[in-house]
Computed example of a mutant assay.
Amino acid sequence: MVRTTLVLACAALVLSGCDSAPTGPAPSTPPPPTTSTAATSSPTAPASLTPVRRVFDAAHLQDGVRRVLTESYLIAGVGDVSCPAGEDVVAGHIFECTVDIAGEKEKVTITVRDAAGGYEVSQPEP
């Protein structure tokens, strides 16, 4: 009986040793990810929340005005069109372009209809 108790006691010790976890340091969680701003911006430069200013491309605008005058208003002799550079693409904004029509300098009024860049061209006036 002593032998049976001793075998059972040794078996209990062996089994209890198999079930225990190693006694090393507890596993750690990795540190939270960090983001670096060195590659994207200067640490002293604040992020800009200012909306980007949109302006008309003067060359495209001039071509559009010429097309409206010749195709929609059916005006013959439309020559050079000159529109100011840097006009804002803002609904309700109004400005003028100068147009050469049959050798005479005339003006057309441009009215911006929407923020997408739609505009209206007035009839030419001397």
Rank of each mutant, 00 (worst) to 15 (best):
M1G: 12
M1I: 11
V7D: 11
C10D: 05
A12S: 12
A12V: 12
L13T: 10
L13F: 10
L15N: 09
G17A: 15
C18Q: 07
D19E: 02
A21N: 00
A21W: 01
G24A: 02
A26G: 01
P30Y: 08
P33H: 05
T34M: 11
S41E: 09
T44A: 14
T44C: 08
A45C: 11
A47C: 10
A47W: 08
L49E: 02
T50G: 03
V52F: 09
V55C: 02
D57S: 07
A58W: 03
H60Q: 15
Q62F: 02
D63T: 09
D63G: 06
G64H: 04
G64I: 03
V65N: 06
R66F: 13
R66W: 14
L69D: 01
L69S: 00
E71F: 00
Y73Q: 14
L74P: 02
I75K: 08
I75V: 15
I75R: 07
A76V: 13
A76Q: 14
G77W: 09
G79T: 08
D80N: 13
S82H: 05
A85K: 10
A85W: 00
G86F: 03
V90T: 15
A91S: 11
A91T: 07
G92R: 09
G92P: 05
G92I: 08
H93F: 15
F95C: 05
T98L: 09
T98C: 04
V99D: 06
A102L: 06
E104N: 11
E104P: 01
K105R: 08
K105N: 01
K107Q: 13
V108R: 00
V108H: 04
I110W: 03
R113I: 15
D114P: 00
A116E: 11
G117Q: 04
G117E: 00
G117M: 07
E120A: 15
S122N: 00
S122Q: 06
P124S: 01
P124K: 05
P126Y: 03
